[in-house]
Protein backbone atom coordinates (compact mmCIF):
# COMPACT_ATOMS: atom_id res chain seq x y z
CA UNK A 1 0.00 0.00 0.00
CA UNK A 2 1.27 3.40 -0.88
CA UNK A 3 -0.90 6.38 -1.78
CA UNK A 4 1.07 9.14 -3.41
CA UNK A 5 3.14 10.03 -6.44
CA UNK A 6 6.49 8.32 -6.67
CA UNK A 7 9.77 10.05 -7.46
CA UNK A 8 9.55 9.78 -11.25
CA UNK A 9 6.13 11.32 -11.37
CA UNK A 10 7.04 14.07 -8.96
CA UNK A 11 10.16 14.91 -10.97
CA UNK A 12 8.21 14.98 -14.21
CA UNK A 13 5.51 17.17 -12.71
CA UNK A 14 8.07 19.53 -11.23
CA UNK A 15 9.83 19.87 -14.56
CA UNK A 16 6.52 20.82 -16.16
CA UNK A 17 5.84 23.26 -13.34
CA UNK A 18 9.20 24.95 -13.90
CA UNK A 19 8.64 25.17 -17.62
CA UNK A 20 5.20 26.70 -17.14
CA UNK A 21 6.54 29.13 -14.56
CA UNK A 22 9.06 30.35 -17.12
CA UNK A 23 6.85 30.34 -20.19
CA UNK A 24 3.27 30.66 -19.07
CA UNK A 25 3.05 33.55 -16.64
CA UNK A 26 -0.19 35.50 -16.24
CA UNK A 27 0.88 37.85 -19.03
CA UNK A 28 0.80 34.93 -21.44
CA UNK A 29 -2.70 33.95 -20.33
CA UNK A 30 -3.77 37.57 -20.61
CA UNK A 31 -2.31 37.93 -24.10
CA UNK A 32 -4.29 34.90 -25.23
CA UNK A 33 -7.42 36.96 -24.66
CA UNK A 34 -6.71 39.07 -27.70
CA UNK A 35 -5.00 36.68 -30.07
CA UNK A 36 -3.81 33.14 -30.55
CA UNK A 37 -1.86 31.94 -27.53
CA UNK A 38 1.88 32.18 -27.32
CA UNK A 39 3.16 28.86 -28.76
CA UNK A 40 6.21 28.63 -26.47
CA UNK A 41 4.65 26.86 -23.49
CA UNK A 42 3.10 24.32 -25.86
CA UNK A 43 6.40 23.79 -27.64
CA UNK A 44 8.09 23.27 -24.31
CA UNK A 45 5.53 20.67 -23.26
CA UNK A 46 5.95 18.95 -26.63
CA UNK A 47 9.71 18.79 -26.16
CA UNK A 48 9.28 17.42 -22.66
CA UNK A 49 7.21 14.61 -24.11
CA UNK A 50 4.03 15.64 -22.28
CA UNK A 51 1.84 15.62 -25.37
CA UNK A 52 2.84 12.17 -26.52
CA UNK A 53 3.32 10.72 -23.06
CA UNK A 54 0.22 8.58 -23.30
CA UNK A 55 0.42 7.85 -27.00
CA UNK A 56 1.15 4.19 -27.68
CA UNK A 57 4.80 3.45 -28.43
CA UNK A 58 3.72 2.27 -31.87
CA UNK A 59 2.74 5.84 -32.75
CA UNK A 60 5.90 7.36 -31.35
CA UNK A 61 4.64 7.95 -27.82
CA UNK A 62 5.99 6.96 -24.43
CA UNK A 63 3.14 4.60 -23.62
CA UNK A 64 2.87 5.95 -20.06
CA UNK A 65 -0.35 6.41 -18.18
CA UNK A 66 -2.72 8.85 -16.48
CA UNK A 67 -0.76 8.82 -13.24
CA UNK A 68 2.08 10.65 -15.01
CA UNK A 69 -0.08 13.07 -16.88
CA UNK A 70 -2.71 14.17 -14.37
CA UNK A 71 -0.22 15.94 -12.07
CA UNK A 72 1.20 17.82 -15.06
CA UNK A 73 -2.28 18.87 -16.14
CA UNK A 74 -2.95 20.13 -12.63
CA UNK A 75 0.08 22.39 -13.06
CA UNK A 76 -1.24 23.56 -16.42
CA UNK A 77 -4.47 24.42 -14.62
CA UNK A 78 -2.53 26.40 -12.04
CA UNK A 79 -0.72 28.28 -14.78
CA UNK A 80 -3.90 28.87 -16.78
CA UNK A 81 -2.36 27.38 -19.93
CA UNK A 82 -4.74 28.42 -22.72
CA UNK A 83 -4.18 25.51 -25.13
CA UNK A 84 -6.24 22.29 -25.04
CA UNK A 85 -3.79 20.11 -23.16
CA UNK A 86 -6.36 17.70 -21.75
CA UNK A 87 -7.93 17.12 -25.18
CA UNK A 88 -4.61 16.60 -26.90
CA UNK A 89 -2.53 14.69 -24.40
CA UNK A 90 -5.07 12.85 -22.31
CA UNK A 91 -8.07 12.31 -24.59
CA UNK A 92 -6.60 12.00 -28.10
CA UNK A 93 -3.03 10.76 -27.66
CA UNK A 94 -3.93 7.39 -26.07
CA UNK A 95 -6.11 6.78 -29.14
CA UNK A 96 -3.04 7.05 -31.31
CA UNK A 97 -3.66 10.62 -32.39
CA UNK A 98 -0.26 12.19 -32.07
CA UNK A 99 1.68 15.14 -33.48
CA UNK A 100 -1.20 17.59 -33.56
CA UNK A 101 -2.96 20.00 -31.26
CA UNK A 102 -6.39 18.47 -30.88
CA UNK A 103 -9.68 20.11 -30.01
CA UNK A 104 -12.72 18.03 -29.15
CA UNK A 105 -16.44 18.31 -28.60
CA UNK A 106 -16.49 15.43 -26.12
CA UNK A 107 -16.60 17.85 -23.21
CA UNK A 108 -19.38 20.03 -24.59
CA UNK A 109 -20.67 21.80 -27.69
CA UNK A 110 -18.37 24.81 -27.38
CA UNK A 111 -15.03 23.42 -28.45
CA UNK A 112 -12.08 25.06 -26.69
CA UNK A 113 -9.11 25.82 -28.89
CA UNK A 114 -11.31 25.53 -31.99
CA UNK A 115 -9.87 28.82 -33.20
CA UNK A 116 -6.43 27.38 -33.79
CA UNK A 117 -6.38 23.59 -33.22
CA UNK A 118 -4.87 21.44 -35.94
CA UNK A 119 -7.23 18.50 -35.64
CA UNK A 120 -10.70 17.82 -34.29
CA UNK A 121 -11.75 14.73 -32.40
CA UNK A 122 -15.51 14.56 -32.76
CA UNK A 123 -18.19 12.30 -31.42
CA UNK A 124 -20.18 10.63 -34.17
CA UNK A 125 -22.90 8.14 -33.37
CA UNK A 126 -21.16 6.35 -30.53
CA UNK A 127 -17.71 6.39 -32.12
CA UNK A 128 -15.01 8.99 -32.57
CA UNK A 129 -13.65 10.51 -35.78
CA UNK A 130 -10.75 12.78 -36.42
CA UNK A 131 -11.00 15.72 -38.83
CA UNK A 132 -8.31 17.92 -40.24
CA UNK A 133 -8.77 21.63 -39.94
CA UNK A 134 -9.83 21.88 -43.57
CA UNK A 135 -12.50 19.26 -42.96
CA UNK A 136 -14.50 21.29 -40.46
CA UNK A 137 -16.45 24.48 -40.36
CA UNK A 138 -15.69 26.49 -37.20
CA UNK A 139 -18.10 29.15 -36.00
CA UNK A 140 -16.22 31.21 -33.40
CA UNK A 141 -18.18 32.20 -30.29
CA UNK A 142 -17.53 34.82 -27.64
CA UNK A 143 -17.00 33.19 -24.28
CA UNK A 144 -16.46 34.73 -20.86
CA UNK A 145 -12.94 33.31 -20.74
CA UNK A 146 -11.71 34.59 -24.06
CA UNK A 147 -8.43 32.73 -23.78
CA UNK A 148 -10.29 29.54 -24.58
CA UNK A 149 -11.02 30.53 -28.20
CA UNK A 150 -14.08 28.33 -28.35
CA UNK A 151 -16.08 27.59 -31.43
CA UNK A 152 -18.95 25.46 -32.63
CA UNK A 153 -17.50 22.86 -34.94
CA UNK A 154 -19.28 21.09 -37.78
CA UNK A 155 -17.52 18.46 -39.91
CA UNK A 156 -17.66 19.15 -43.63
CA UNK A 157 -15.21 16.50 -44.85
CA UNK A 158 -15.07 12.72 -44.36
CA UNK A 159 -12.50 12.62 -41.52
CA UNK A 160 -10.94 9.38 -40.36
CA UNK A 161 -12.34 6.81 -37.95
CA UNK A 162 -10.48 6.73 -34.64
CA UNK A 163 -12.64 4.20 -32.89
CA UNK A 164 -16.09 2.78 -33.39
CA UNK A 165 -16.06 1.16 -29.96
CA UNK A 166 -18.46 2.93 -27.59
CA UNK A 167 -16.45 1.68 -24.61
CA UNK A 168 -13.31 3.33 -25.98
CA UNK A 169 -15.28 6.52 -26.51
CA UNK A 170 -16.59 6.32 -22.95
CA UNK A 171 -13.06 5.90 -21.65
CA UNK A 172 -12.00 8.91 -23.69
CA UNK A 173 -14.73 10.92 -22.01
CA UNK A 174 -13.58 9.72 -18.60
CA UNK A 175 -10.03 10.78 -19.37
CA UNK A 176 -11.27 14.20 -20.39
CA UNK A 177 -13.24 14.54 -17.17
CA UNK A 178 -10.18 13.47 -15.19
CA UNK A 179 -7.98 16.05 -16.93
CA UNK A 180 -10.58 18.72 -16.30
CA UNK A 181 -10.74 17.75 -12.63
CA UNK A 182 -6.96 18.04 -12.42
CA UNK A 183 -7.06 21.47 -14.07
CA UNK A 184 -9.74 22.56 -11.63
CA UNK A 185 -7.64 21.55 -8.65
CA UNK A 186 -4.77 23.55 -10.13
CA UNK A 187 -7.04 26.54 -10.70
CA UNK A 188 -8.41 26.28 -7.17
CA UNK A 189 -4.87 26.29 -5.80
CA UNK A 190 -3.96 29.26 -7.96
CA UNK A 191 -6.93 31.33 -6.84
CA UNK A 192 -6.19 30.54 -3.21
CA UNK A 193 -2.52 31.45 -3.69
CA UNK A 194 -3.54 34.77 -5.20
CA UNK A 195 -5.94 35.43 -2.34
CA UNK A 196 -3.40 34.54 0.36
CA UNK A 197 -0.88 36.85 -1.30
CA UNK A 198 -3.36 39.66 -1.53
CA UNK A 199 -4.72 39.52 2.02
CA UNK A 200 -1.21 39.39 3.41
CA UNK A 201 -0.26 42.59 1.59
CA UNK A 202 -3.45 44.59 1.67
CA UNK A 203 -3.90 46.66 4.84
CA UNK A 204 -7.07 48.21 6.26
CA UNK A 205 -7.74 49.47 9.78
CA UNK A 206 -3.98 49.51 10.20
CA UNK A 207 -3.48 45.77 9.77
CA UNK A 208 -3.28 43.22 6.98
CA UNK A 209 -6.83 42.19 6.05
CA UNK A 210 -5.64 38.58 6.30
CA UNK A 211 -5.49 39.00 10.07
CA UNK A 212 -9.29 39.35 10.24
CA UNK A 213 -10.96 36.15 11.25
CA UNK A 214 -13.77 36.43 8.69
CA UNK A 215 -11.16 36.48 5.95
CA UNK A 216 -9.14 33.68 7.52
CA UNK A 217 -12.10 31.40 7.82
CA UNK A 218 -13.12 31.81 4.20
CA UNK A 219 -9.65 30.95 3.03
CA UNK A 220 -9.36 28.04 5.47
CA UNK A 221 -12.59 26.68 4.00
CA UNK A 222 -11.12 27.08 0.52
CA UNK A 223 -7.99 25.21 1.55
CA UNK A 224 -10.14 22.47 3.04
CA UNK A 225 -11.87 21.82 -0.28
CA UNK A 226 -8.56 21.51 -2.11
CA UNK A 227 -7.16 19.21 0.55
CA UNK A 228 -9.90 16.67 -0.04
CA UNK A 229 -10.35 17.06 -3.80
CA UNK A 230 -6.70 16.52 -4.72
CA UNK A 231 -6.44 12.88 -3.52
CA UNK A 232 -9.60 12.04 -5.45
CA UNK A 233 -7.89 13.19 -8.64
CA UNK A 234 -4.82 11.15 -7.79
CA UNK A 235 -6.99 8.11 -7.22
CA UNK A 236 -9.05 8.56 -10.37
CA UNK A 237 -5.86 8.68 -12.45
CA UNK A 238 -4.68 5.48 -10.80
CA UNK A 239 -8.03 3.80 -11.29
CA UNK A 240 -8.12 4.68 -14.99
CA UNK A 241 -4.50 3.68 -15.51
CA UNK A 242 -5.12 0.31 -13.89
CA UNK A 243 -8.57 -0.10 -15.39
CA UNK A 244 -10.08 -0.66 -11.97
CA UNK A 245 -13.74 -1.52 -11.73
CA UNK A 246 -14.58 1.79 -10.07
CA UNK A 247 -12.64 3.89 -12.57
CA UNK A 248 -15.68 5.74 -13.94
CA UNK A 249 -17.27 6.63 -10.59
CA UNK A 250 -13.86 7.60 -9.27
CA UNK A 251 -13.48 10.05 -12.15
CA UNK A 252 -16.90 11.44 -11.32
CA UNK A 253 -15.97 11.77 -7.67
CA UNK A 254 -12.83 13.65 -8.65
CA UNK A 255 -14.64 15.93 -11.08
CA UNK A 256 -17.40 16.70 -8.59
CA UNK A 257 -15.02 17.44 -5.72
CA UNK A 258 -12.67 19.46 -7.91
CA UNK A 259 -15.53 21.53 -9.31
CA UNK A 260 -16.70 22.26 -5.82
CA UNK A 261 -13.20 23.13 -4.65
CA UNK A 262 -12.80 25.55 -7.54
CA UNK A 263 -16.19 27.11 -6.83
CA UNK A 264 -15.44 27.61 -3.14
CA UNK A 265 -11.93 28.90 -3.81
CA UNK A 266 -13.17 31.21 -6.55
CA UNK A 267 -15.84 32.81 -4.39
CA UNK A 268 -13.52 33.15 -1.41
CA UNK A 269 -10.69 34.55 -3.50
CA UNK A 270 -12.93 37.11 -5.16
CA UNK A 271 -14.49 38.19 -1.88
CA UNK A 272 -11.16 38.46 -0.09
CA UNK A 273 -9.67 40.54 -2.91
CA UNK A 274 -12.39 43.17 -2.61
CA UNK A 275 -12.92 45.46 -5.59
CA UNK A 276 -9.46 44.98 -6.98
CA UNK A 277 -10.39 41.37 -7.70
CA UNK A 278 -13.53 42.58 -9.43
CA UNK A 279 -11.56 44.03 -12.32
CA UNK A 280 -9.98 42.70 -15.47
CA UNK A 281 -6.74 44.32 -14.36
CA UNK A 282 -6.00 41.96 -11.51
CA UNK A 283 -5.02 38.44 -12.56
CA UNK A 284 -7.68 36.67 -10.55
CA UNK A 285 -10.33 36.88 -13.25
CA UNK A 286 -8.18 34.92 -15.71
CA UNK A 287 -8.38 31.85 -13.47
CA UNK A 288 -11.84 32.48 -12.10
CA UNK A 289 -13.42 32.52 -15.53
CA UNK A 290 -11.54 29.43 -16.61
CA UNK A 291 -12.84 27.61 -13.55
CA UNK A 292 -16.43 28.59 -14.32
CA UNK A 293 -16.10 27.05 -17.77
CA UNK A 294 -14.39 23.87 -16.65
CA UNK A 295 -16.83 23.22 -13.82
CA UNK A 296 -19.67 22.92 -16.30
CA UNK A 297 -17.97 21.06 -19.13
CA UNK A 298 -17.02 17.36 -19.29
CA UNK A 299 -20.14 16.82 -17.19
CA UNK A 300 -21.27 19.28 -14.56
CA UNK A 301 -21.51 18.49 -10.88
CA UNK A 302 -25.01 17.04 -11.10
CA UNK A 303 -24.05 14.85 -14.03
CA UNK A 304 -21.19 13.33 -12.09
CA UNK A 305 -23.14 13.00 -8.86
CA UNK A 306 -25.80 11.11 -10.83
CA UNK A 307 -23.17 8.83 -12.30
CA UNK A 308 -21.93 8.03 -8.81
CA UNK A 309 -25.49 7.49 -7.61
CA UNK A 310 -26.08 4.89 -10.31
CA UNK A 311 -22.78 3.21 -9.58
CA UNK A 312 -23.95 2.93 -5.97
CA UNK A 313 -27.15 1.31 -7.12
CA UNK A 314 -29.31 4.34 -6.47
Amino acid sequence: MRFGLDGDRVAFRDAARDLLARRCGPEVVRAAWSGPPDPRPWQGLTEMGVLSLMAPESSGGLGLDETFLAPVIEEAGWAGLPQPLTATALVAAPLGVADAMVATDLGGPLVPGAGYAEAFLMETGGGLRLYRRDEVDVEPVDTVDRARHCGRVRPTGPGAAVTADPAAAARAFDRGALGTAAELVGLARRMLDLAVGHVTERRQFGRPVGSFQAVKHQLAEARLQIHFAAPAVTYAAYALANRLEDASPSVSTAKWLAGRAAAVCGRAALQCHGAIGYTVEADLHLFLKRSWALTRTWGDGDHHADRVASALGL
Binding site: T234, S252, A305
Partner: peptide, 24 residues
Protein backbone atom coordinates in the same frame (compact mmCIF):
# COMPACT_ATOMS: atom_id res chain seq x y z
CA UNK B 1 -30.24 10.23 -4.55
CA UNK B 2 -27.93 12.93 -5.77
CA UNK B 3 -27.44 14.27 -2.26
CA UNK B 4 -26.71 10.77 -1.01
CA UNK B 5 -24.11 10.31 -3.74
CA UNK B 6 -22.57 13.66 -2.83
CA UNK B 7 -22.27 12.72 0.82
CA UNK B 8 -20.82 9.36 -0.19
CA UNK B 9 -18.20 11.14 -2.34
CA UNK B 10 -17.16 13.24 0.63
CA UNK B 11 -16.72 10.09 2.71
CA UNK B 12 -14.67 8.64 -0.14
CA UNK B 13 -12.54 11.81 -0.22
CA UNK B 14 -11.87 11.37 3.47
CA UNK B 15 -10.80 7.77 2.90
CA UNK B 16 -8.44 8.72 0.09
CA UNK B 17 -6.90 11.60 2.00
CA UNK B 18 -6.37 9.30 4.97
CA UNK B 19 -4.56 6.79 2.75
CA UNK B 20 -2.25 9.60 1.74
CA UNK B 21 -1.73 10.69 5.34
CA UNK B 22 -0.96 7.17 6.48
CA UNK B 23 1.55 6.86 3.63
CA UNK B 24 3.30 10.04 4.75
Amino acid sequence: RRRAAEAWMKAEAFRLRTLETVTV
